[in-house]
């Protein structure tokens, strides 16, 4: 190796004067000392970062699962129809395998046939024989069917107000539960609740029906007062006279029978009936109801007669211990039952 090349390479050998001159000139651009280094910011440990990664991944996974579940939850614009027995028909055509019904479609069963409507993962509606059901509306969070005649049984695990069932004389609104509705050709019928609560209403007339109770309905009148199915026949007859009889809530005789036949459990009927009665009859009912379950502190007889203390009435209802009408999540078992 030539000396000049060696000097250029490792500063050994004969120095090259020109290279030495360059070294001398350019060395002035070199810092004399290594300056103070930068202020180092605290760095997250790898473990912390790993935790963040896992948390982010878990959040993404939960989001994806939530989105998938939400998608599967809703029934979509076309509900799946399953033939359970016989030959159900959609718009006069037999239900084919993988049959579906959209808004406006009519599902009919004869005396030999039964069908099942699947509402995604949200639940199912069983269509009993001799029934006519129209799908009125279906969109996210709002589904509506009309039972023109016959019977249906619904099981749902969904937020309140998700499903409505119109009948010729009242509308049943699901508050998160299992229930059945039956109406005859004239439009009379009943609602029966087996889990949770259902609101049964026509115009301003309303009945909140808890599990184990039933409420009748009549065309032109609307829903009657809810009652437990194990109440006495005399109690039920008296209630029917009050709700649908000629003298209606003015029937003091029927009211007398009702009060005398009432058990502790029947306070549900009494409290439902209280706002329907004329003010002159409310005192008797309040007295009996107070014996069965004392009203909350601050709720007086005058409040009952005047019908103005709604918070007090709500507190009385709460004392029944039947659960929150909107607490649909506690009925989670119903959805598994519906998927079987």
């Amino acid at each position: 190796m030539m000396d000049g090349n060696r000097y250029l390479w490792d500063k050994t050998g004969e120095p090259d004067p020109e290279l030495q001159r360059w070294e001398e000139l350019l060395a002035r651009f070199s810092p004399r000392e290594t300056p103070i280094g930068p202020t180092l910011p605290a760095r997250e440990s790898r473990r912390t970062k790993r935790v963040y990664y896992w948390l982010a991944a878990a959040a993404c996974l939960l989001f994806a699962m939530g989105a998938a579940l939400r998608s599967a939850w809703q029934p979509g614009p076309q509900w799946k129809v399953v033939t359970v027995a016989g030959t159900p028909r959609i718009d006069n055509r037999p239900v084919a395998s993988g049959g579906r019904i959209g808004a406006g479609g009519m599902l009919e069963t004869d005396r030999h046939s039964r069908a099942r409507l699947r509402l995604g993962l949200m639940g199912v509606i069983e269509i009993e024989p001799n029934s006519r059901v129209r799908l009125v509306e279906t969109r996210a969070g709002r589904h509506r069917i009309a039972l023109q005649s016959g019977s249906i049984a619904a099981r749902l695990w969904a937020p309140p107000w998700t499903l409505s069932v119109d009948t010729p004389s009242a509308t049943a609104i699901d508050l998160g539960c299992a229930f059945s509705v039956r109406v005859d050709e004239k439009g009379s019928g009943y609602l029966r609740v087996t889990s949770g609560w259902v609101q049964f209403q026509l115009n301003g007339r309303r009945a909140i029906v808890p599990a184990g109770a039933r409420a009748f309905t009549r065309p032109g009148v609307g829903p009657g007062t809810p009652f437990f199915e194990d109440s006495s026949s005399a109690f039920q007859l008296a209630l029917e006279r009050l709700d649908f009889g000629d003298r209606g809530y003015q029937d003091a005789s029927a009211l007398g029978v009702l009060l005398s036949e009432s058990r502790a459990k029947d306070i549900v009927s009494l409290l439902s009936l209280l706002p329907r009665l004329p003010a002159s009859a409310r005192g008797m009912l309040f007295d009996r109801a107070s014996q069965l379950l004392p009203p909350p502190a601050g709720f007086t007889r005058e409040d009952a007669l005047g019908g103005t203390n709604q918070p007090g009435m709500d507190a009385w209802w709460d004392k029944l211990g039947l659960g929150d009408a909107k607490n649909w999540l506690v009925d989670w078992r119903d959805v598994f039952a519906s998927l079987r």
Binding site: E33, T34, P35, I36, G37, T39, L40, P41
Partner: peptide, 11 residues
């Protein structure tokens, strides 16, 4: 916590 990178020894 702020930290400074040390420099070479003076001199």
């Amino acid at each position: 916590m702020e930290r400074f990178v040390a420099t070479s020894k003076s001199g």
